[in-house]
């Protein structure tokens, strides 16, 4: 697969398309169609937040679902306890996710490559185990149902409820635009240029005085924070929060989107999210079946593409350098 051509205008292209999509709900006001659109928007943001780590620092984290799940649980629990406004939920979820990322980074960032992936997998399973077993707080495998959606209001201006799908749609659309801009800033801004330098030649980068570890960690924290925020928005929409949210299944969804779409490429990740979210939602396949298909896609992709994932990453890097 040839990676999608990307240039500095791709961000305008994507935001333009999203704005075009934004009139869709006014034309087709079917709950099912809206649900597919909202899921796709959620996955676009979630996958972009994941690719900040895989695409920019080249590390394969297997703990990304932990941050998403934490955000979702935090929101559900706040909703049960006090019912804070949604922006406050997002802030708390983001901060706690970054906190979890900081804790995880302590051992994980002392490791590289495959060991980093092992460690993040171990940490992710640990977090999931805690959520599953801490029944007093999380209700464990019984899940938290009826996540308060009254918490989703914005000073009375924007009333969002489960019945008002259009409002959810616009909320996710706005969040996606913010994440896309953030992603772009990270990949081409000062942080992005530094990370590109690190990726191209880690020794050289460190010899000119770049504190590689600090930049890598910073990227990891930002990525975790965004995932937490998305979890926080997703919980009231879907209304149920289960330990599954923290499972490897979600991370595999992301891996499939990012690697098949093209890691490190904005267009690739957004395209991958659309490609891999729309059809399972439309066909209403079971999660197990969906994951089998994703696994097969990934397997075929990795084993049959001559240069595999790395080739595509390096292609993207080359293009980023040219830009």
């Amino acid at each position: 697969m040839k990676a999608i051509k990307e240039n500095k205008y791709s961000i305008f292209l994507i935001i333009g398309v999203l704005l075009l999509v934004s009139i869709l709900p006014l034309l087709v006001n079917l709950p099912f169609v809206l649900h597919v659109l909202i899921s796709t928007l959620m996955y676009i943001g979630f996958a972009l937040s994941y690719d900040i780590v895989t695409g920019q620092i080249g590390a394969v984290s297997l703990a990304h679902a932990s941050f998403f799940g934490l955000g979702a649980y935090v929101t559900a629990l706040i909703g049960k306890a006090i019912g804070a406004p949604f922006w406050l939920n997002i802030i708390i979820a983001t901060i706690l996710s970054i906190g979890l990322a900081i804790v995880m980074s302590l051992p994980a960032f002392r490791l590289s490559d495959l060991s980093f992936s092992f460690a993040t997998l171990g940490l992710a399973l640990t977090v999931q185990l805690v959520v599953k077993n801490w029944v007093k707080i999380t209700r464990g495998p019984m899940c938290i149902h009826n996540v308060s959606n009254s918490s989703l209001w914005f000073n009375g201006i924007l009333e969002i409820s489960r019945t008002n799908l259009i409002a959810y749609f616009y909320l996710f659309l706005m969040v996606d635009i913010v994440i896309i801009i953030l992603y772009r800033l990270i990949s081409t801004g000062r942080l992005g240029r530094t990370l590109t330098a690190v990726r191209n030649d880690e020794v050289l980068a460190s010899s000119v005085g770049i504190n590689i570890q600090r930049y890598k960690r910073l990227t990891f924290f930002i990525s975790a924070g965004i995932a937490g925020a998305i979890g926080s928005l997703w919980a009231p929409y879907i209304s149920v929060v289960c330990p599954d949210y923290l499972s490897m299944d979600y991370t595999l969804n992301l891996l499939a989107i990012v690697f098949i779409g093209g890691s490190g490429s904005l267009l690739g990740v957004v395209g991958g999210s659309i490609l891999l979210t729309v059809w399972p939602e439309l066909l209403r396949v079971t999660p197990a079946f969906r994951l089998i298909i994703y696994g097969l896609f990934l397997l075929i992709f990795v084993t049959s593409i001559p240069n595999g994932v790395k080739g595509i990453i390096s292609n993207v890097n080359k293009r980023l350098k040219i830009n």
């Binding site: 394969v60 994951l291 089998i292 994932v309």
Partner: peptide, 17 residues
């Protein structure tokens, strides 16, 4: 290692599902 990780992880997800 990246391709090997993705390929075997994909296998794992396929088998468990």
């Amino acid at each position: 290692w990246r391709e090997q990780l993705v390929a075997t992880l994909a296998t794992s997800i396929i088998l468990s599902n």
